[in-house]
């Protein structure tokens, strides 16, 4: 039924159209969007980088990270991120969720282990540890923790930095975003920006 000669002829026409489409959509479109983005939103387009004081920058030399990407860290004086399955943790070159199934025994064991470790670290009741602290994120580079997990860490961070718990709680509140329009997404605390604020207050 298929006419090979006709297919060949249509493929040649298709090739001409594909070349034109590639120039338009594969070169023109991304370059145009890049151009406009670099002029209108240069900070966001380059990865929302921030300096050690939390100021916006596009200079990779003076930046300490991206405001929208989480970082690995186990500094006992700072807030901790969620568990991560991205490489050795928070690796942008191998972003990954654990992909462990909902009844996977290894995952259940890992959750119990994390619960015990966090309860000991924060000196709280194991039942008080919230779900996001016990589970690996989808991206492995989740920038946020839940307000509950942040609240859990306040006493430790306050003590380690010689700050009052109220001072630390204020900084947590400043770095908490609510739901957009009251409904979209979830309340969350940006860990990198919070830790920058903690360092700033503790150092001053």
């Amino acid at each position: 039924m298929l006419d090979i000669y006709a297919l060949f002829r249509h493929s040649l026409a298709g090739l001409r159209v594909l070349v034109a489409m590639t120039l338009l959509l594969g070169v023109g479109y991304p370059l145009l969007v890049t151009g406009v983005a670099q002029v209108a939103f240069p900070w966001q387009a380059d990865g929302s980088l921030v300096t050690a004081t939390g100021a916006r920058t596009t200079d990779t030399g003076e930046a300490v990270g991206s405001a929208i990407v989480g970082q690995a860290g186990d500094d006992p004086a700072l807030f901790h991120n969620r568990p991560s399955a991205a490489g050795d943790g928070y690796d942008l070159l191998s972003t990954y969720g654990s992909n462990l199934g909902p009844n996977n025994p290894d995952l259940v064991a890992a959750i119990e282990e994390r619960r015990a470790a966090i309860a000991e670290r924060e000196d709280v009741d194991p039942a008080a540890v919230p779900p996001d602290a016990l589970t690996a994120s989808a991206s492995g580079i989740d920038p946020d923790i839940s307000p509950a997990y942040a609240a859990l860490q306040v006493p430790r961070v306050a003590a380690a930095n010689g700050l009052s718990e109220d001072e630390v709680r204020d900084l947590v509140a400043e770095n908490t975003s609510g739901r957009t329009w009251g409904v979209l997404g979830e309340p969350r605390v940006n860990v990198l920006l919070l830790n920058i604020a903690i360092r700033g207050l503790a150092g001053s």
Binding site: R82, G97, S98, N99, L100, P102, L107, V108, I111, E112, R115, V129, P130, P131, D132, L134, T135, A136, S137, A138, S139, D142, P143, D144, I145, S146, G185, E186, R188
Partner: peptide, 13 residues
């Protein structure tokens, strides 16, 4: 075990 289905999910979502 975790108290919520947050494995493989982002906090902001």
């Amino acid at each position: 075990a975790a108290g919520g289905a947050m494995e493989g999910k982002e906090v902001r979502f």
